[in-house]
Simulated scan of single mutants.
Amino acid sequence: MTRTARIAQLRESIARRVLDTIGVPADARILQVCRVGQIFIVASEESSNRWAAYAVDTFRIPASDDSDPFYEDGEAPKLWGVLAGWGGDGADEVDGMLAAATAYARSVA
């Protein structure tokens, strides 16, 4: 397995665990995963969702130590924090939602 394939597999595994934290069913399909600084972005398809079959969610990556400059010592979050999300009904909306999520992540990074 190539390094690129291992990284993609690791990102998808992390994305699956992150989506579990917000109650996304295990049968949801992960479409794309990316990272912008300390923000993790996951695009997914959940065909059984009656409100929006496609979603892009942003999460704050948990701090592994106290080096996060935005928090006092010992106060950095240790859990995935949901920041923002977008939903749509069509696959053609995913690229726009990813662009909005990436712009958002850059604005809060």
Rank of each mutant, 00 (worst) to 15 (best):
F59Q: 04
D57T: 15
R35N: 04
W51A: 10
I41Q: 03
Y54V: 02
S48H: 01
Q38T: 08
R50F: 04
E45S: 08
N49E: 07
A52W: 07
P62H: 11
W51Y: 08
E45Y: 05
V36Y: 02
F59G: 07
I41V: 15
A55F: 02
F59D: 08
E46S: 08
S48P: 02
I61A: 01
S48Y: 04
P62E: 11
I41P: 00
D57V: 10
E46L: 14
F59W: 10
R50T: 10
S48I: 06
D57L: 04
Q38V: 14
D57Q: 14
V36N: 06
A52N: 07
R50C: 03
S48W: 08
I39L: 02
E45A: 13
A55D: 00
I39F: 01
V36A: 07
G37W: 11
Y54M: 03
F59H: 05
E46T: 10
I41Y: 04
V42N: 02
R60T: 07
F40I: 10
S64Q: 15
G37P: 01
F59A: 11
V56E: 08
S44W: 09
W51I: 10
S44P: 00
S48G: 04
D65E: 09
T58R: 00
Q38G: 05
R60H: 10
S64E: 15
A43Y: 09
R50E: 03
Y54E: 02
A53Q: 09
Y54I: 08
S64D: 12
P62Y: 09
P62I: 10
A43T: 10
P62D: 10
A52P: 00
I39T: 15
R35Q: 15
S44R: 10
S47V: 14
A63Y: 01
I61S: 01
S48V: 11
A52Y: 01
S44G: 03
G37I: 09
R50N: 01
F40Y: 11
D57E: 13
T58H: 03
F59V: 09
Q38E: 07
T58I: 06
